[in-house]
């Protein structure tokens, strides 16, 4: 697995993909946090603006990473090579996913200067920031595992991208306050809560607020395990398509 991981992780940096991705992520993260989120105007030593926008930022850019995971292997035919090397299928799925996740973590870590800025300007709640970053990293993994599964399904990267954005958009929307407000006008409280609890955004918000509840962590970790397992099954089933 570590061999696949290393190859994949290096592949990001072998092309301009890594540079383009990291620059755009940082630029948008900065824009959302400082300009649109109004970090300075709020006069509060927290990174709420960053964490509030990061799921939506991820929605646009993480599918750009996950779309190539399997679709690209299919297009170039290297999947045939990979599967006939003495690897277990689960090693391939895990190695690829972990490389994508690690790459997204690199991007997230590059926003640590925001934290440093905050500490310099005020006295932030470091515990809350740690749990906020934990939530961000878990959300990234969760979203990538969904994208990887979709990428395994198709040979076409554009389809993989669009489908991933659509699916992830729905899962975020289910936990978005405005959506829930609309739903509240016709659905019962129990239904609303059930809907919201399936959304990644609900669990992300809970963690971001600085309350590390094991159930929220389990939601993300469990989701990743399920999607990666499905990913293995899909690859096994459709490897020749």
């Amino acid at each position: 697995m570590s061999i696949v991981f290393r190859r994949e992780f290096r592949a990001y940096f072998a092309t301009p993909l890594a540079a383009v991705f990291l620059v755009i992520f940082l630029f948008l993260a900065g824009l959302f946090t400082f300009n649109i989120g109004g970090l300075y105007e709020r006069d509060q030593a927290d990174l709420r603006p960053f964490f509030q926008y990061v799921p939506w930022l991820f929605l646009l850019i993480l599918p750009a990473i996950s779309m190539r995971l399997w679709a690209e292997e299919r297009r170039t035919g290297t999947i045939e090579l990979l599967v006939t090397l003495p690897f277990a299928l689960s090693d391939l799925v895990l190695g690829k996913f972990l490389a994508a996740w690690a790459f997204s973590i690199v991007a997230v870590l590059l926003t640590v200067p925001f934290w440093i800025t905050l500490s310099w300007l005020g006295d932030p709640d470091h515990g809350a920031l740690v749990s906020g970053y934990l939530a961000t990293v878990l959300l990234a993994g969760f979203m990538l595992s969904v994208g990887a599964l979709i990428s395994a399904w198709t040979k076409n990267q554009v389809i993989a991208f669009v489908l991933s954005v659509a699916v992830l958009f729905i899962t975020l929307l289910l936990g978005y306050p405005a959506t829930l407000d609309v739903a509240r006008t016709f659905a019962s409280k129990g239904v609303i809560e059930a809907l919201a609890s399936t959304s990644a955004l609900t669990h992300f918000d809970a963690l971001m607020r600085g309350v590390v509840d094991l159930r929220d962590v389990l939601y993300f970790v469990g989701g990743m395990i399920v999607f990666l397992w499905l990913n293995t099954a899909v690859i096994d089933w459709k490897k020749s398509d």
């Binding site: 190859r7 072998a14 035919g77 290297t78 045939e80």
Partner: peptide
Amino acid sequence: YLPEGAPAYPEM
């Protein structure tokens, strides 16, 4: 095994 078309990772 040499698969049809001799595939390999293009950027490597």
